[in-house]
């Protein structure tokens, strides 16, 4: 039982890591980056390669995050800045990028599945509450909660969140107030990209990186924020927890229908509140 609980928690954390970047971007900038899963995949692959070359997890993590941050920067500078307030075109452009990134990944890593190795410090397991649990997964849980706390603080307690939200609605006015809106947007986008990279490297330790993981991650993140509420960080947390536990307990106790429990929840939420549990009301 404890084991399942911890599994649920760690899965929830992974889901949150996956979806926080997407959620942030939508909540603040009303942009959905469909290439989000691709960033996960690339970060995982890059992390693997760096770890193999340098034997350093820290470096793997940093380079992985830097890569996705850089790619996000490129996306913003070259593409998205020309599509201000054009929701559909933004979606389409990022969708097209999925093909490009997957092709890129195939070229460099030849379609193999690679796992980022567990950082040396966290190898092994810990005795906890009567069961043995993977140290890494425990660390992951801690990291996830810390990240949630940091993001929450950033959004609620600083001016940045408010500025960005205002900037989405009326850039001219915000610019009139002396803030460089385009710069802030770029920064947010890059930050979200780095988050995706973080999720990618950390997640690839468990899931591995392979062609097709981009689609899986995108769908999962999407389900999380559809359930939790698009654009709501709290919603992403709620959604991750809900799905994480539902999936783990479902697999443990109702293995036949486990897969559908998640979708069942999603459909139920869509019926009750289309914009998600903690999403804005229409």
């Amino acid at each position: 039982m404890i084991l399942q609980f911890l599994n649920g928690l760690s899965y929830s954390v992974i889901l949150f890591l996956l979806s926080s970047g997407l959620c942030l971007m939508f909540g603040l900038m009303k942009i959905v980056n469909l290439a989000h899963g691709s960033l996960y995949m690339l970060a995982g692959y890059v992390g693997f390669s760096v770890a193999r070359a340098t034997d350093s997890f820290a470096l793997a993590l940093l380079v992985g995050m830097a890569c996705t941050a850089l790619i996000s920067f490129g996306m913003d500078r070259c593409l998205l800045r020309f599509l201000y307030k054009q929701d559909i075109e933004q979606l389409l452009v990022t969708f097209g990028l999925i093909y490009i990134f997957e092709n890129l990944a195939r070229n460099i890593w030849k379609g193999h599945t690679y796992f980022v190795p567990v950082p040396k410090l966290l190898i092994g397991s810990v005795d906890l509450f009567g069961t043995t649990y993977s140290t890494y997964r425990l660390a992951l849980i801690l990291i996830g909660f810390s990240l949630a706390a940091v993001l929450w603080l950033l959004e609620e307690k600083t001016k940045i969140g408010a500025i960005i939200r205002a900037g989405v609605d009326d850039a001219e006015m915000v610019e009139g107030m002396g803030k460089n809106v385009k710069l802030i947007f770029t920064l947010v986008f890059v930050f979200a990209g780095a988050l995706a990279g973080l999720g990618g490297v950390l997640g690839s330790i468990l899931t591995g990186s392979f062609l097709g993981v981009d689609g899986m991650v995108l769908i999962l993140s999407l389900i999380v924020i559809v359930i939790g509420g698009m654009g709501s960080l709290k919603g992403a947390m709620v959604g991750s927890l809900l799905i994480g536990f539902a999936d783990v307990f479902g697999k443990a106790y109702f293995p036949d229908v486990a897969y559908f429990i998640v979708y069942g929840i999603m459909v139920t939420v869509l019926v009750i509140k289309p914009t998600g549990l903690m999403g804005e009301s229409e």
Binding site: L91, V226, M230, T275
Partner: peptide, 21 residues
């Protein structure tokens, strides 16, 4: 019926999720 309770990006994403279902 499910998807049209929203619009724009929400709509697009919900249709994506339903297709994935």
């Amino acid at each position: 019926f499910l998807a049209l309770r929203t619009q724009g990006i929400y709509f697009a994403l919900i249709t994506l999720a339903l297709a994935e279902l």
